[in-house]
């Protein structure tokens, strides 16, 4: 079943076209890789889908419903969650409170119920000592907390914008396992942005490649990584 679909999605910033005429779909139970060189438009694309940025033109559909101009907080409530490339811990709330807010506001739970479900999510992600300030967390714990906060919305579509960045290889392995597990258990539609190709290869069933805002290739990682346009885009970016 298609959870999320875009058609001709475009976002301009003054002269620059950050996302250009992008059509894609994301299905329940699928983990999709979203890759491309720096500045390709990956984060902007997630912003468009999650309502943080509004498109210049095009259309976003969630479970058959047009949500192109729906505000971000409403999208969180109907089941679209995400994490941020630049981490966004709420520093005046404790770890458990950070996770609770999705349950409280997206799901409308009482504080008591929200605390209980946040505790369950944190246990699932092996995040402990939940009454700590976020300032005391390691990078791994912050990343887990951000995933937990997204999950507290009880989403059907989840976007992870470079959650592995800043983690060592053991921690990366751990988070890959966690993402696979939570996605499978919840039959989530997941979009993952990562720069490390090993992560993409291991985690995703399908990949879309962006370059300068345009979708230039789509398919399983093994196939896409041999596409001359993709190789050119990455080499061009590196040169």
């Amino acid at each position: 079943m298609t959870t999320l679909r875009t058609e001709g999605l475009t976002r301009r910033f003054q002269g620059l076209v950050a996302v250009k005429d992008l059509s894609f779909h994301l299905d329940a139970g699928e983990i999709l890789g979203i890759i491309g060189p720096n500045g390709a438009g990956k984060t902007t694309f997630i912003n468009l889908v999650s309502g943080i940025t509004m498109p210049s033109s095009g259309r976003v559909e969630y479970k058959g419903r047009d949500i192109t101009y729906m505000p971000a907080h409403e999208r969180a409530r109907i089941g679209i969650a995400r994490t941020y490339q630049l981490i966004h811990p709420l520093e005046n709330l404790t770890v458990i409170e950070n996770v609770m807010i999705g349950s409280v506001f997206s799901r409308g739970k009482s504080l008591k119920e929200a605390r209980r479900s946040a505790e369950a999510i944190c246990a699932e992600l092996e995040l402990d000592r939940l009454d700590r300030d976020t300032a005391k967390l390691s990078m791994l714990e912050i990343k887990k907390m951000e995933i937990a906060r997204a999950l507290a919305n009880e989403p059907e579509a989840l976007f992870l914008d470079e959650v592995m960045a800043g983690l060592n290889s053991d921690e990366t392995k751990q988070v890959i396992g966690t993402v696979q597990r939570i996605a499978a258990e919840r039959n989530l539609a997941v979009g993952v942005v990562e720069h490390v190709m090993g992560v993409i290869r291991e985690l995703t069933q399908r990949v879309i490649v962006l370059e300068a805002g345009e979708l230039i290739a789509e398919g399983p990682y093994e196939k896409v990584s041999k596409d001359p346009r993709v190789i050119e885009a990455y080499l061009g970016g590196a040169a």
Partner: peptide, 18 residues
């Protein structure tokens, strides 16, 4: 929860349904 989240980070607040 709502006010602290808004003060700390409006973007994160929105993404949690606020």
């Amino acid at each position: 929860f709502a006010l602290t989240a808004i003060r700390n980070n409006e973007t994160a607040a929105k993404s949690s349904g606020i």
